[in-house]
């Protein structure tokens, strides 16, 4: 019988299977922190999250705090948390379009949060405001001037962050690097349409690794050079998501691209 994916000599899968870690960095580009109304998290604070990340060799987790996205927890407090683990944590400045005074403050203070803050996080489906709404404009203009990334929650069929809306936003702001969180989950043709039209768009994979044939189809239709690894940590286990990439029927190069190469091309190795 042919050897299983975990037994391929010299492969990433073999290394992770044997050792639980491999000689590569992992960049997890979609994390959160803090408790959540609808789910029990045993490990949602920085120390225990970091312990989990270190076990599998995550070099950077870029996160937005649940309390900032859903509540009134200010981004400066998130920065203070991030600063406790500067060797592994980075943050997105969370944006709520309903808090315009917070947005003004965050943009004013953004420089004080760098280099730990690398960009912004939008959650349009939850805030029920389209990405093209004027309330997001100050942030989009700011990110455009500085060529900063924005991680946007995207979902197939959404009127707030679905393919049509994101196509319009990414076309209007070509200097912004958009990370499409969840890659428009459930709408692969929509994702391809955005990918074909907008070179400034990358597709983040949270909740997709492990879904049978999805990673293969994304690699075939969009290309592994446009895909970014992410887990929604503390939602999803790093081993589960890495396992979904490693066991996908894609090339070894594809796996390297997804887990770290694409991020290093975008942001370098020292950030």
């Amino acid at each position: 019988m042919k050897k299983a994916v975990w037994e391929q000599p010299g492969s990433l899968a073999e290394a992770f299977w044997k050792n639980g870690i491999a000689d590569i960095p992992i960049y997890d580009m979609h994390g959160h922190m803090g408790s959540h109304n609808a789910i029990y998290f045993a490990r949602c604070e920085a120390p225990e999250m970091v312990a989990h990340l270190r076990r599998i060799g995550v070099r950077r987790l870029v996160f937005s705090h649940h309390y900032s996205l859903m509540g009134s927890f200010r981004n400066q407090r998130v920065h203070a948390i991030t600063a406790r683990f500067p060797d592994i944590l980075r943050m997105y400045v969370s944006i709520s379009p309903h808090q315009t005074d917070f947005i003004a403050e965050d943009l004013e203070q953004f420089d004080s949060m760098t280099p730990l803050a690398i960009g912004f996080k939008f959650l349009p489906d939850y805030h029920k405001v389209k990405v093209t709404d004027p309330r997001y404009e100050p942030v989009l203009n700011f990110a455009s001037e500085r060529r900063l990334p924005i991680l946007v929650h995207t979902w197939g069929g959404s009127p707030y962050d679905g393919p049509d809306v994101m196509l319009e936003a990414a076309t209007r702001y070509p200097q912004v690097t958009f990370f499409m969180a969840h890659s428009f989950s459930g709408d692969l043709p929509g994702a391809k349409r955005v990918a074909d039209a907008c070179p400034n768009v990358y597709f983040e994979l949270t909740s997709l690794p492990g879904q049978h044939t999805i990673i293969e189809r994304l690699c075939a239709d969009i290309g592994s050079h446009r895909l970014l690894f992410g887990t929604d940590m503390p939602w999803f286990d790093e081993y589960q998501h890495v396992g979904g990439i490693l066991s996908a029927d894609i090339s070894e190069d594809d796996k390297h691209n997804i887990l770290y190469r694409n991020v290093e091309k975008l942001l370098g190795k020292d950030w």
């Binding site: 081993y239 589960q240 998501h241 396992g243 979904g244 490693l246 996908a248």
Partner: peptide, 13 residues
């Protein structure tokens, strides 16, 4: 719906 490998690795480790 899901593939075999992801939960294998999470159990293994």
């Amino acid at each position: 719906r899901f593939g075999h490998g992801s939960t294998m690795l999470s159990i293994r480790h």
